[in-house]
């Protein structure tokens, strides 16, 4: 898995979906999630070289997001990538099982930082089903198939945030008015995991 290729793909899809993410965020937040994520991933794509060891590259991505995204998404996605890096350290040929472990570590890191549980209408609602799908598929599937299962689960998880009442972040200030909108953080998580699966497919 070439992390640089994933980050470039992620930056491209975030740029493409920038306005939609901004609009989702405007519905229940302050309307800049697409802009902030695009800025962070562009910077990360510039700093990560193709062929670097996965753990080093993921850590660089995490530190870059931490210093360029701002808002809540910066520390959360920073923790996510630094958590992934921890799971892939000292692994030269990561298979589905290794990625499942890494995604477990990354999900735990996000939950430690943001203190959100499934059902709070946050990126955790995409991450947790993706983590579970990847673990479930890891035993019998190729890396690409397992990552695709994770991406599909994240997408379903993001869509399932629509009827939820937000309990974390700015959206929680809306109370009942947060119901009926898809969470922008869960949406960007699903986009990034989709980019990961597509990158694995090309390699």
């Amino acid at each position: 898995m070439d992390v640089a290729a994933w980050v470039r793909a992620g930056a491209a899809v975030l740029e493409q979906e920038r306005d939609r993410l901004n609009r989702l965020d405007a519905d229940i937040g302050d309307g800049d999630h697409g802009a902030n994520m695009t800025r962070g991933f562009k910077a990360a794509a510039e700093r990560v070289a193709s062929g670097a060891p996965a753990a080093d590259a993921l850590r660089t991505v995490g530190m870059t997001l931490l210093s360029t995204v701002g808002g809540a998404a910066g520390p959360l996605y920073g923790s996510f990538f630094i958590g992934l890096a921890g799971g892939l350290r000292d692994v030269s040929d990561a298979d589905a099982d290794v990625w499942a472990t890494a995604l477990e570590a990354a999900t735990a890191a996000v939950q430690r930082r943001g203190k959100a549980e499934p059902g709070d209408k946050t990126m955790v609602d995409a991450l947790v089903p993706a983590r579970d799908a990847l673990r479930g598929a890891a035993a019998g599937a190729s890396l690409q198939e397992a990552l695709q299962a994770a991406a599909d689960a994240a997408q379903k998880g993001a869509e399932a945030t629509v009827p939820l009442l937000a309990r974390k972040g700015r959206a929680s200030y809306l109370g009942e008015r947060s119901i009926g909108h898809q969470d922008p953080g869960a949406t960007s998580t699903a986009l990034l995991l989709q980019a990961l699966a597509a990158t694995a497919d090309e390699q």
């Binding site: 800049d32 800025r39 931490l66 210093s67 995204v69 701002g70 808002g71 809540a72 910066g74």
Partner: peptide, 12 residues
């Protein structure tokens, strides 16, 4: 100062 309406970052 962060970006407009966005928290500054830990390095700052």
């Amino acid at each position: 100062p962060g970006a407009v309406f966005t928290s500054p970052t830990p390095d700052q």
